[in-house]
Amino acid sequence: MARVEFRNIRKEFVDDNKGTFTAVAGSDFVINDKEFVVFVGPSGCGKTTSLRMIAGLERQTSGDIIIGDRVVNNLHPKDRDIAMVFQDYALYPHMTIRENLSFGLKNLKKPKAYIEQKVSQAASILGLESMIDRKPRELSGGQRQRVAVGRAIVRDPQVFLFDEPLSNLDAKLRVQMRVELSELHKRLEATIVYVTHDQVEAMTLGERIVVMNNGIIQQIASPTELYANPQNMFVAGFIGSPPMNFIDVQKEGNVLRMEGGAFTIPDSMAGALSKYDNRHLILGIRPEHITGEDLPGTTNLDYKYSTKVQVVEHLGSENLVYFRVGNRTVTAKVHPETTGYPGMDKTFIFNFDKVHFFDPETEQRIDW
């Protein structure tokens, strides 16, 4: 396996009608040997383009891509020692699973005994032994995806590249395949670069996550760090389900005022917010850090906000309660025993140990 490095990578596309479009704007990062790194972001953010540049399917406009100890800028995909699993399984329908798995190695003119060993090993790892002589039409979506992964495994590459491989599966199969991919990474001790638009997939699979938007890397961090300490409003709003709430507040001395209420600023935050006197700020708080006052054991009642409930979603293990603060809808993720119904007057408790503040102009988080 090998490390992957981007050195000031830039990718531009030229459109005859719209001019130059920048898909990736000056990326610098290192994916360590045997690391599982996930690229995540909305459609058009540059994540798939980044993956395709590693594979050699797209040529970067400027910068260097290094795999292992080689600069691969001028190498064809077949010479980069990578294996890619696409969103579409792309299996040969007239071939058995065994033949699909062995096809690439036969093209490389590998010895028959070597091919049989690799195919048998991949089938064992992926639980495909019992269906090795079936054709793709006889398999479920999850089984076909395993075959697609198996074609990559038999190559024994330095780097595995996955381009939204689970997007064609239903919700239950996606959960199952996430578990299988995590176990596969541990078993193979492989370097894996994975692209998805699904932040739940990113959080559950990645050892580190690269969050992208508009061709720019917003933050690279572990799932825990991204969730607890997002660098800006985009990351805070993209990572987490439901996403972080944003509330407009006005700082007046040691008080934060919002429509319908006010909070006293804790001493621990006063210094960091001192330069924002008489200015607008964005307060960020995750839904699980807003609780219902009527739940037994609720503490820290200093940060209460009274309002009317708009909508309640009963999810069994928790309830999502929606209410408004000014022109923003706020979500509280509360205990299922917390009472609430549309139109009800209700008081919520904000956990100020967990809040974030963002500069409204730069949208960067204010450290405190």
Rank of each mutant, 00 (worst) to 15 (best):
F6S: 00
D15R: 14
K34V: 06
V37Y: 03
V38C: 04
V38Y: 05
V40H: 06
G46M: 05
R52T: 12
I65E: 02
I66W: 10
G68L: 10
R70W: 06
D81E: 13
V85D: 01
V85T: 04
Q87K: 09
L91E: 02
M95R: 10
I97A: 01
N107P: 03
Q121R: 07
I125Y: 06
I125E: 03
L128S: 02
D133G: 07
D133Y: 13
G141I: 09
D156E: 14
D156S: 08
Q158W: 06
F160D: 05
S167I: 09
N168I: 11
K172S: 08
Q176D: 14
K186S: 12
I192P: 02
D198L: 08
R208F: 04
G215F: 02
G215A: 03
Q219Y: 05
A221R: 10
P223L: 07
A228G: 08
N229I: 12
Q231H: 15
M233K: 14
V235W: 04
A236I: 05
P242K: 03
P243Y: 04
R257L: 13
G260H: 08
D267V: 14
S268I: 14
D277Q: 15
R279A: 10
G284L: 06
R286G: 04
L301K: 15
K304T: 15
Y305E: 07
K308N: 14
V312K: 09
G316C: 09
E337L: 11
G340S: 04
G343Q: 08
F350W: 12
P360G: 09
Q364R: 15
R365T: 08
